[in-house]
Design a protein around this nucleic acid. Structure first.
Lengths: 149, 149
DNA sequence: CAGGATCCGTTTCGATACTG
DNA sequence: CAGTATCGAAACGGATCCTG
């Protein structure tokens, strides 16, 4: 990563100053959406999905997300050649943001998966809790035999 | 915008498909933040603020936001040469998204304006209601014409 | 085959200069 | 003050190549 990021501005005078690099990036947001809402975990899934991200861009964003502590890569314990990307706790904390984004999006333009939208609209807290639960379940599942982290 | 947007993919199989153009753009997000949280309304204010947006980019994003129906420009009734940018109803509906973004941002890195963060954290609904109220007040103020001046 | 890295033409960005 | 014009730099995207 040759990017020097010359930002010497300690201007944390406003909200969103640092986070904007993730929240304000199209691909990062879509990757997080796919992990959170569609339970995607692999490079290949991200590639085949959504708006046709290019391989180099995908690799780049996965690195960015990791660098920001939002996802973490790990070997698939059942298939050594596969890498499984997981949301971190910080990443899963994006669930409320994602929920509001989906709601806003759904109420102002046509989107698919109305089922999901209904669900979030009916009970936002429950939706976030559900996301967390599925996430926690997968965490334990993958650490049962190996005890990672 | 000469972009033809060749997306023939009626793939609205996922949430956020269209909205990602605004939600996934750094500058658009910052402009909305400044309008919503700091009560900014003019080109000049946006320029002087935050991460030093370039003049052409600012003009471009203001156009995008208008095209997406999130802001609307209007003449300042008290000063004809000034343009005042206002959030539309759709724009103000972004308040919950913004609130969650600020909360996420604040709980994972240093941000300024802890006062605002406390306020949102204490009562999110109240915060959103407050944003809406200030907005509605300014709407009526600028449309009642007569009494100002 | 999964997960990239590299090359390369195109698009967008961003800083600055300029204009109504 | 509110933008537009310009131009080099960076990012994107697609295709292909590499590695385990």
């Amino acid at each position: 990563m040759p990017k020097i990021n010359p930002a010497p501005k300690r201007r944390s005078g406003c909200p969103l100053n640092a986070s904007i690099e993730i929240l304000g990036d199209r691909w990062s947001l879509l990757i997080v959406r796919d992990m959170m809402l569609r339970n995607f975990h692999s490079y290949k899934q991200f590639l085949e999905s959504h708006e046709r991200i290019a391989t180099n861009i995908l690799a780049d964003r996965l690195r960015d997300l990791e660098k920001h502590g939002i996802i973490t890569p790990q070997r698939d314990p059942e298939d050594g050649r596969k890498v499984i990307y997981r949301l971190t706790a910080k990443g899963i904390d994006l669930a409320p943001v994602m929920a509001e984004m989906v709601l806003w999006s759904a109420s102002h333009e046509d989107v698919g998966n109305q089922e999901l939208v209904r669900q979030i609209r009916a009970d936002k807290t429950k939706f976030v809790a559900g996301v967390r639960q599925r996430w926690a379940a997968q965490q334990t599942k993958s650490s049962t035999n190996g005890n990672s982290k």
